[in-house]
Amino acid sequence: MAGTGGNSRTGYALLSPTLAVMGLALAAPLLLLAVTSLKSQAGIGFADGWTLAQYGEVLGRSSYRILFARSVGISAAVTLVTLLLAYPMAYFVAFHARHKFAWLIALTIPFWTSYLLRVFAWKIILGYGGVINSGLLRLHLIDQPLSMLLYNPFAVVVTLAHAWAAFAILPIYVSLEKIDRSLLEAASDLGDGAVRRFLRITLPLSMPGVIGAAILIFVPTTGDYVTPSLVGGPAGSMIANMIEVQFNRVGNWPLGAALALVSMVLVAVIAGLFVTAARAAAKAAR
């Protein structure tokens, strides 16, 4: 058993830089956030004593509930749209492309630019005097610029879906690439046409990639702050914008902290339910 003890010591030693960073940069701030959420604001400081009042406020007020629901809704829409767009691309590269590496590079080139730059690019495309509106005006398809393109949830979904596409393509590509081609031949041999074969073999076997991609997109987009504040307008603002307001403008840190923690728990619960449901669905699809 001495060897095992030595091994685990070596293991901890190797992990220690990571553990230190995680401790300082993640656990400590989170703890601080939790402590803050149990206080109440008094002027520029906190009042003495502990209280659950912030959580009552967060859960009780309908405007916050609407914001939570909208954040989850927009994020779910972004996840769905991204997966639907990314899957065919990943499928093409995995099964039909000749120069796979070149294709992967080409697909990820847009993501070499800054996230902020891409959000601004969409502002220019969707804006009042933007590419789409001026194009449509020139073609005389409309005589007034459309205002429904920007500053709403639609714009947020479009912008986020584009911004996160690479994070969906890559995991789905990897899981498709891993599928043993003889399994597909076996399915054909056993009587499946292309569609049935896709639904019974390719899709279930690529589910790990799809689930991974969904989590990778859903979790960060729910808490996204930049995109809704730049292209969302009042109707497209999300929970992170409210958290920012509480911390920076209203100066109610405990309420901001409570909002942040509740949204974190919410995302974790939804992601957990999603993974469970996806696993069950994959099992049921025979």
Partner: peptide, 8 residues
């Protein structure tokens, strides 16, 4: 199939 191609 040579690899048996059992659906995993």
């Amino acid at each position: 199939f040579q690899s048996y191609a059992i659906f995993p």
